[in-house]
Design a protein around this nucleic acid. Structure first.
Lengths: 173, 173
DNA sequence: TATAACATGTAACAAGTTACATGATTTC
DNA sequence: GAAATCATGTAACTTGTTACATGTTATA
């Protein structure tokens, strides 16, 4: 929740926007970062407005449906800063989702387990390829930083998987 | 959701249990793995029963509240296997929560940003220490594997953070 | 005798997703 | 004239959490 709120607030820090615009930006540019859905964006904006974090003004061009333009307020900026500091300084203290599977890997026979992990490796490599060709947002930019972080973690994941597969192949020492 | 269901099914694969028992095991032994709450455990068991994945028998000792003992069914075992294969072979394709912050790091001044990341590093190191002293569940066990994976990822995260902090300290090249 | 542990559960709430509904405008 | 894009929103549903409610038994 905090995460999605931070994302919306962050986008509003750059400029005032309407819901459609925010949703479109996330869908088109941040598809690899967030899977936030349209309805969620709208409801977060409503929530932020109720909390006094954003102001709304209505704009209309001709006969088109009116746009609800959201502008971040000082309260909202403070909230943004708090959330930003909190997420930058904290660390998840629970296993990432997807790791639960490792706990029960003994329920599969060795060959199948290895085959499944190899599929995971393949997906990691595909993702790495995609991420490495993502257009730069300008060197030293936060967006680039977040992508670099993602790449580093996936590489580590892949290497660990490869190493683990090797160990599984070797007879128990 | 799939994750929590897999966890409950996995625990029932070992032995039939009642809700309290499952919840207690998660709280006492898997606190670093899952943050699933009591009410959630009970409702997942109910859900699994409705889906035909588990059977219930009632047991009572003296005047104590009766225990609902849940036993995994063949359907449940199949479901377990499916979920297990799916999580072992798939890879999250969205940025891990916590990474959104990096996108907006430019909104802070350099010194503060560095200080926050250093806090994150410290938490990573504390967590690594805790995880390295976690009692072994037996070598080559899935549980150990999942902890080793966790350790590898956190180490990578820490190293990346340290490297990034260094780069932030250096004048732009 | 108080309180922790045992054992269950429900009700209210919060957050998100899916799917639907509306209607104008641009493009093919 | 059909389909995509623009722009908003709501209703129903799922998942999960918090907080409450209940009563027994062992322990300090």
């Amino acid at each position: 929740m905090d995460e999605r709120e931070l994302l919306v607030l962050g986008l509003l820090m750059t400029q005032s926007q309407h819901g459609y615009q925010i949703n479109e930006f996330i869908e088109k540019n941040l598809g690899r970062v967030s899977d936030m859905k349209k309805a969620t964006a709208y409801s977060i904006l409503k929530r932020l407005n109720q909390k006094g974090c954003v102001d709304v003004t209505v704009e209309q061009e001709g006969n088109r449906p009116p746009r609800q333009i959201y502008t971040i307020t000082p309260t909202g900026e403070e909230q943004f800063n708090q959330l930003l500091r909190a997420t930058l300084s904290s660390l998840e203290n629970v296993t990432p989702s997807g790791d639960i599977g490792f706990m029960f890997i003994d329920h599969l026979n060795k060959d199948e387990a290895i085959a499944l992990l190899e599929q995971k490796v393949k997906k990691a490599e595909q993702l790495l390829e995609t991420l490495s060709t993502v257009p730069n947002h300008g060197p030293g930019t936060g967006v680039d930083l977040s992508i670099k972080h993602r790449i580093a973690l996936i590489q580590c994941d892949r290497d660990w998987l490869l190493q683990t597969i090797q160990q599984m192949r070797q007879p128990v020492s």
